[in-house]
Design a protein around this nucleic acid. Structure first.
Lengths: 232, 232
DNA sequence: AACGTAAACGAACGTTCGTGCTATTAACTA
DNA sequence: TAGTTAATAGCACGAACGTTCGTTTACGTT
């Protein structure tokens, strides 16, 4: 883990980051970009160095091993995800409206092409789901964070009286996540932008099924989502 | 493509397959197994040869290039999928019952561990969705076959009066596929067998939403599916 | 301005990758 | 059973992999 870096960051009284840390950040930005397309194994030190116009060895010294590079890359992707999806939806009071915004932010995150290869973690978990080790563990933990975030949002909506108490939060979270996976899959493989409308439509249906009357009023009307745009 | 092999198979009047074809088949069985775990890029000629206790060059001669090996492997996986999911559900008359059986066969195909790495095509499409070329094209085409199969099943159910005419088949097929992706993802990453129950439950809900009264009677009752078993 | 450290480089390592050759063995045919 | 073709092995190649080394450049501090 990056305990060393964090310890340094804590002891230091926030000076402007050292040269090394700055390039490390630059490296990781490119690493995330490459890994989202080529995968975390396809992310090669040589290729990464070439993309950054620096030497393999100079780059390598920042991480010490490929494994550490992969872990750092996953961490960097997590930061991007948090900044892109989580942070913008922290404002607003807990409830169904905020939950919908969170889900919507996820779609925007994919549609906006934050990662060139689509959802970084969908790709990474597919790549590492059969490769035991620290990388897999980290990816699994991060995705659990996301699922837990969804579950929490659903429970908050229940507490606010927006979602039926008898609905099971884990079940709803599973379906939300599945629709996101499905949309990302269709978009990546076919460039199908309709998939986002389909997923949103299905998600709206899911929410309406489980919403109380007061909760239902917080959702956009079904008519606002039209499945159209480019097929194939 | 395997046009050469097919031509040979057609001109011959079905004698027992020649030695070459037999070993080619053996190679592909192992190739599919490895690729489902390590991916189609991780499927290395050296590793494959070692797993089969044969020489790299001897194995290589069967395909002529890595690309052809990958294409043949994808084709072989398709055959397995057809034998495991499609064929068993060809019997029975078109309608909602058969459609449900088809979806159920898919879950059994994953739960049964037909491929060690889970759904071969889910893994393959995630791996190649950002790598243009013949392999990607083939995977995309095969997955389109599957989606088309689902759409056809839904349309047949509409024709049989089991599914509402105003329901859009493509939308339903998208959700079915998403739930399958989601279940496969959760099972591969967390070993979560509950995910199958969750996906089945959601799918049953989807079908009930879109079913006519007569169609609804063809579905298993919601109570038959209990979410339980091992959590992670 | 000079020093000490941190960062980047260039070259080389042992492997493994995919892909050609040329033999040699095994399988089918006459 | 002999002869021919098909199948497999052996070896070598250039390139790229992750990693290590010693050296050189650049930065940050007194």
């Amino acid at each position: 883990m990056s305990s060393e870096a964090e310890a340094i960051e804590l002891t230091a009284i926030e000076p402007r980051p050292a040269k090394g840390e700055r390039t490390r950040q630059t490296i990781l930005e490119t690493a995330v970009d490459i890994a989202s397309v080529e995968g975390l194994e396809g992310l090669t030190i040589g290729r990464l160095a070439e993309a950054l116009s620096m030497s393999k060895s100079g780059l390598f010294a920042h991480f010490g091993s490929k494994l550490e590079l992969q872990l750092a890359t996953v961490d960097a992707a997590r930061s991007v995800f948090i900044g892109e999806v989580i942070m913008p939806t922290l404002a607003g009071e807990p409830g169904l409206a905020r939950l919908w915004n969170l889900c919507d932010a996820w779609f925007l995150y994919i549609q906006g092409g934050v990662f060139r290869g689509g959802c970084f973690f969908a790709a990474a978990s597919a790549e590492f789901d059969s490769r035991p080790g620290p990388v897999r563990d980290k990816i699994a933990a991060i995705m659990k964070e996301w699922l837990a975030k969804l579950v929490r949002g659903i429970m908050e909506s229940q507490a606010a009286g927006h979602i039926l108490r008898e609905s099971e939060p884990e079940q709803i979270a599973f379906v939300i996540n599945s629709l996101q996976m499905g949309a990302n899959w269709a978009f990546q493989l076919y460039g199908d932008r309709q998939a986002f409308d389909r997923a949103r439509l299905a998600m709206l249906g899911l929410f309406h099924e489980n919403a109380t009357p007061v909760g239902a009023q917080l959702l956009p009307s079904r008519g606002h989502i039209r499945v159209g745009g480019d097929a194939d």
